[in-house]
Simulated scan of single mutants.
Amino acid sequence: MTRQQEASTPHVARGGPAHAVTRAVQHPARLRPAAPARPETARPDVAAAPAEQAAPPRRLLVLDGLRLAAALLVVAHHLVRGPWGVEPGSLFGPLAAVASFGWLGVNLFFLISGFVICLSSWGRGLGEFAVSRAVRLFPAYWVGVVLTTAVLAAWPALRGPLPAPESLVNLTMLQSGLGVTDQDWSYWSLGAELRFYLLFAIVVWLGVTCRRVVYFCTVWTLVAAFSTTWDQRWIDNMIVPEFAPYFVAGVALFLIHRFGANLLLWGLVGVNWLIALYRLQGYPALAHFHLDWWSVAAVVTGCFALLAAIALGAFQRVSWRWLTVAGALTYPLYLIHQAIGQTLILALRDRVPHWLLLAGIVALMLGVAWLVHRYVERPLGGRLKRSLTTSLAAVRRG
C-alpha cells in the first residue's frame, strides 16, 4: 500500500517548521532531553546500521498476558452472548453487560500486533520475516479449520460446514481475498492481520530502521484517513482503514519503547487514537448491543493507555513464568472458540446449568488450546521453519 523511501523525501527550507519535522523523523533523539547516547539510538536514521540490525529487544511477558486477556474478552463476547435461547442478561447478569464490549478485544489484538510485529522484525530480512509469520500462523490455524469443519459436519446444531471447495480454500487463509466465507466467523480478523504483514513487509524488504518505520506509519495514517473520500475499494481492501489506527499506534508505541518518547512519535499515537475514536461511531455493534459511543471510546482509550504504559516501561519487572503459557494459549484459543463453542451451547443448554456449561466450555477450549500448542505448534512449527529456511536458501542459490 504505502512505500516511502528515504530518497523521495521532499526538499524543505532550512529552519522552518517543516524542516524541523523532517529532522525529527531522521533523528528522533533530537526531540528528547539530552542523555548519554546508547548504541541502538545513536544514529537511528542510518539504513542498515549495525545497531539497528542487532537482535530484537527481549520479549515483554506482560504482552503475553494482555493477549490472553484480549482473547478471553472475545470468547466472553461470543459465548456469554451466544445462542442460549433467552436474553443473556437474564442468565449471566453483569457478565453479559461486560461481554457486550468483548468485541473490542479484537481492536486490542491489532494494537498489540503492531507493537509485536515491529519488535520481532527488527534485524530480520524479508525471508526471515516471512518464515516467522508462516510458522507462527499456519500450524495452529490448520488444526483450527479442520476441527471446526469436523464439529460442524458431525454436529450441525449451529450450521453445517461450508461446501468442500470453500472449506479447502479456508486452509490457505486467503479466503477473504477470494470472497469466501470463513469457516469460523472469528477468522475474519486474520485477513486484516495478513494485510498488515504484507504492508509491513515493504519496510522489512527495505531494511527496518527507525526512520523508515516512521515514514511507513505516517504514510499509512494519511492514506487510511483520505481513502474514505477516494471511493477506491481496492485501496480500502489493502489498507484496512477501519483498523489501521490500531496497527500504526502499536508500531509507534514500540518505537517509543525502543528509542524513547518524543513529540513526533506521540503525535502518531495521538492522531491514530483520535481517528480510532471517530471510526467507532460507525460500528454496528454499538446499535446492536445498545452501547453508547462514550463508553466504547473509554474502553478503546484504556487499551491505548495500557499499551502506552507498557511502552514506557511500567511493567518491565513483570516476569511471571505463567505469562509465557498464557501467550501460547491465545492464538489456538481464538481459532477454535466461536463455532465449536456455540455448537456446544446449542446442543447442551437444556441439559446442563448455564453457568456450569459456560465454565466447562471455556475450560475445554483452554485445554484444547494447550494441546494444540504442545503437540502441533511446537513440533510442527520447528519442522516447518527448518523446511522453509532450507527452501529459501535453495531459492537464493538459484
Rank of each mutant, 00 (worst) to 15 (best):
A37T: 10
L162K: 03
D64N: 02
L104K: 01
V116K: 08
G85V: 06
V116C: 10
A99P: 00
A69N: 00
D45F: 09
A69S: 14
L178P: 02
R38C: 10
V86H: 12
W122Y: 03
V98Y: 12
P56T: 03
L119G: 07
G93M: 05
L91K: 02
V151N: 04
A150T: 14
F115W: 02
H78A: 00
L95D: 00
A157G: 08
A55F: 08
A49H: 15
Q175K: 07
P94H: 09
R124I: 02
T148V: 11
S113V: 13
A71W: 07
L158C: 07
C118A: 15
G160P: 04
Y141T: 07
L119Y: 03
S167E: 11
A97V: 13
Q53N: 15
R81L: 14
A48M: 11
L158F: 15
I112E: 05
A134K: 03
A51Q: 13
A71N: 10
N170H: 05
G89D: 11
R58C: 00
C118V: 14
A96Q: 06
L63W: 05
A134H: 05
L61T: 08
A48L: 13
G105Y: 04
L152R: 07
N107F: 13
D64S: 07
L72Y: 01
W103L: 09
R59L: 12
G102R: 01
A134I: 15
F92K: 01
P165N: 08
V146T: 14
G127M: 03
V75G: 01
E128D: 15
G127V: 05
D45E: 15
A153E: 01
M173H: 02
A55C: 07
P44N: 09
F115A: 05
L174Q: 06
L168E: 06
V74F: 03
V169N: 09
S120A: 14
L108S: 00
F92S: 04
V143Q: 01
